[in-house]
Amino acid sequence: MNKLWRLLGRRLLQFLPILVFATFVVFGLLQLVPGDPALSLAGDYASTQRIAEIRHEYGFDQPLVVQYGIWLWHAMHGNLGLSLFSSEPVTQLIEDRLPNTIMVAVYALVVASAIGIPLGVLAATRSGSKIDSFVTSTASMGVALPSFWLAMILALQFSLYRHWFPTTGAADFFTDPAGAISHATLPAIALAVGVVATLARQVRSDLLEVLNQQYMRTLRAKGLSNGAILWKHGLRNVSATLLTLTGLQVNRLFSGAVVIEAVFAIPGVGSLVSYSAINKDFPVVQGVVLVLVLIVISVNLFVDIITALLDPRVTAST
């Protein structure tokens, strides 16, 4: 138990600098804007007095480090500022839209794992066969396919022509689970394709490496069935890398969701951030980027800890 706490402590300490740097990057986004940040934050129609107020409020008249401190302090207290357009609190805007993005991303991850992992296993165990070359070439296709183009084709075929799924929008998972699932199905499929390809490729090459090890031949010589070798020795050995890989897909899913949300007009944080970037609504842009990076970092921390707990080699080394 003591060991477990030490492990948790170490991981948290490793993630702390990443967290600090990430917040610094989000804060730094505003510094990239040419000209006076107070002017950009005030929007186009602000009075001189309001600009001066903003300059003081955000501490733009102070050194950069102090500004960062003020911004971080506000952010830690859930204050990400107000939207320059709707004047709504940024936290509120994100809170309203985040569930829709998460719904599509999680759904896509489930679909991708359910298809990608078995495909990779199939290709690895039948390495060199027709199935293997089919999986490998389909995977190359999946990586190169623009997901939003696929989304458009899916929308045309299955919403507009066949009416199997609603074309646009989203529904709340907790009040209307069936509606939420049917709204999110096509976006999730479009989003999943690239991830399926990555997972299938990685599982294939990792598993192939394990299966080509010397001890696999020994196991076979001992009379173990192929199934037992695959499940007890092959997949168990790749499970740790697989978990890490899945964790890494989270930021890719968020990336893809931005564009997919535009195609299906889903009111999520992705459409929020692109709309806000076009309209120079910087507090919203910063807020969304901050929330997404925090989610990615937390998921990876979580995956990291789980992997460490599952893998005796990692636990032993701490």
Binding site: P17, I18, L19, V20, F21, A22, F24, V25, N251, R252, L253, F254, S255, G256, V258, V259, G270, V273, V288, V289, L292, V293, V296, I297, N300
Partner: peptide
Amino acid sequence: ALLSFPPIV
């Protein structure tokens, strides 16, 4: 930290 950001976002 930089790699934790969703690239397109």
